[in-house]
């Protein structure tokens, strides 16, 4: 995977990985000093869920360790490649990584794919795993979770969510699955829990909702 994909007609969405030219294209507040080096090593940014004026895309830069995260904006014209999480799943990107022997995460994605695709759910790896698969830059650690994004084409029931959570929670590495809904995203486990109100992460920030499928598009 080298991220040199066409921008294509698909809208840019949160969690998409964008290949950029470098720190010079970032807009917003002056970024922390580590940002330039991080983008020299891996010229990829992650689309954030945030409000923005259309030609500008809200993105996050990932540095070394969990404390190095920076928010910025980037003009659409400065994006030279785009990979959505589901592109990584469709391409089975984990089969060709050189670090498959060192990290069990990659092989587990094979079982994740089987589980989610049997349920008819488009999905993809996000977080450090998705970033590493898209950029080729090593960022997984032995303590990394497997972060997943599910993109159901139609509402799924809480029962289905609960049965998926039951399967995924048996995996030997902790799986953290988010699910896209029309107004943003929810945690699959919270949706499955049957809680009366759950957190919807929208581009206007998080809020509590009773039925995430009934909330409007942002």
């Amino acid at each position: 995977m080298n991220g040199r994909h066409d921008l294509g007609p698909a809208p840019i969405r949160p969690h998409d990985l964008l290949r950029v030219r470098g720190a010079g294209d970032l807009m917003g507040d002056e970024p922390p000093a580590w940002v330039r080096g991080a983008l020299d090593l891996a010229p990829f940014v992650v689309v954030r869920r945030a409000a923005s004026a259309p030609p500008l895309i809200p993105v996050g830069v990932r540095g070394a360790g969990r404390a190095q995260r920076a928010a910025a904006f980037i003009p659409r014209a400065a994006v030279v490649g785009r990979m959505a999480p589901e592109d990584l799943a469709v391409a089975r990107a984990w089969r060709t990584t050189s670090r498959a022997m060192a990290f069990p995460h990659f092989a587990l994605l094979e079982a994740v794919a089987t589980t989610l695709e049997a349920a008819g759910l488009p999905w993809g790896p996000v977080g450090s795993l998705g970033f590493e698969l898209a950029s080729g830059h090593p960022c997984l650690t032995q303590t990394s979770d497997i972060d997943l994004l599910l993109r159901p084409p139609a509402p799924i029931s809480r029962d289905l969510a609960a049965s998926l959570c039951a399967v995924l929670s048996d995996f030997p590495i902790r799986i953290d699955a988010q699910m896209d809904v029309p107004g943003g995203a929810v945690a699959l486990s919270e949706y499955a829990s049957g809680a009366a109100r759950i957190v919807l992460r929208s581009s206007d920030g998080p809020r509590l909702v009773t039925d995430p499928w009934q909330e409007d598009m942002p």
Binding site: G127, D145, D147, R174, D176, A177, Q178, A187, S189, E190, A195, V199, R201
Partner: peptide
């Protein structure tokens, strides 16, 4: 008891 064990939460 509220919330979720998961990134950003």
């Amino acid at each position: 008891h509220v919330g979720v064990v998961g990134s950003g939460d």
